[in-house]
């Protein structure tokens, strides 16, 4: 395979990854943020303490988190069809990616928000602020550096997940590596794809860290910047390879 053959494939794959990961991250952040905040608020001793709601949301999040992505994707097929009208293509892959990303991000938000000093909440209460004011003016702004770090982690995890989007014909870099590189023994293309992924992830990580640190420094809080609490990313190639076997089966189903 020559470079001129690879180039259009790579370009298209990059575009597909960008679309899938971009939209699903956006949805995961928009939906995960309120869920994460709600998990903190409804927890014992929280402002909206409600054990039932807390347990129910917590369980849903746990189930979402424990579901292997490939299973989630298959399980959500009818839902995906209902939303996008199709179960094939990048658009269709956005739905399971977003659904998988929401609980992932929500847990990270929960941890970040929980770290906000309770004294600040008390201070705003003493000024006559209501719960919404506390969320808007204290919890989210004060947790912002951590929230940015969490977003970085989520983006990277979603890039990893998106490698499996090939099962629904979603395309993307991970899929390219599996279909051409692994299954057609185009080792050169596989390595190029992996290299691109590595670079993309490094850049995202760098930007995320930089933004989190910059905000953190502005606040000038002592100690090191927020650490990413989870594994930086599941290696996309490592994940793509073992799932390669299932890829063909499931795409038949799709």
């Amino acid at each position: 395979m020559t470079w001129s053959e690879m180039q259009p494939l790579l370009e298209q794959a990059c575009q597909e990854t960008l679309i899938m990961v971009g939209w699903s991250t956006l949805i995961a952040v928009v939906a995960g943020l309120p869920i994460g905040v709600l998990l903190v608020l409804t927890d014992k001793g929280g402002l909206l303490q409600n054990t039932v709601v807390n347990k129910v949301i917590g369980q849903i999040v746990n189930i979402g988190r424990s579901m292997p992505f490939i299973i989630l994707m298959v399980a959500l097929m009818s839902f995906t069809r209902w939303i996008t009208g199709t179960t094939i293509g990048s658009e269709a892959a956005i739905v399971p990616l977003a659904i998988g990303g929401i609980p992932f991000f929500a847990r990270l938000v929960e941890t970040a928000v929980r770290e906000v000093d309770g004294g600040l909440v008390e201070a705003v209460q003493s000024m006559g602020g209501n719960t919404w004011t506390i969320v808007r003016k204290v919890l989210v702004p004060e947790a912002l550096p951590s929230l940015i770090a969490s977003t970085t982690t989520t983006i990277i995890a979603l890039i990893g997940y998106s490698a499996m989007a090939g099962t629904v014909g979603g395309g993307g870099l991970g899929d390219l590596a599996v279909r051409y590189g692994y299954q057609r023994f185009e080792t050169g293309l596989m390595w190029i794809t992996v290299a691109i992924l590595a670079v993309v992830i490094s850049v995202i990580q760098f930007i995320g860290d930089y933004a989190a640190r910059a905000l953190h420094r502005r606040g000038g809080r002592s100690g090191p910047g927020p650490k990413l609490r989870l594994l930086k990313a599941k290696e996309p190639d490592a994940q793509a390879a073992p799932s390669g076997a299932t890829v063909t089966d499931v795409s038949k189903v799709a």
Binding site: G119, A123, S126, M127, P141, R218, G219
Partner: peptide, 15 residues
């Protein structure tokens, strides 16, 4: 809101 309160650890928003 008509009662001011000052805290031991200041409780200022760092952001």
């Amino acid at each position: 809101s008509r009662i001011g309160m000052v805290f031991q650890h200041f409780n200022l928003l760092s952001s």
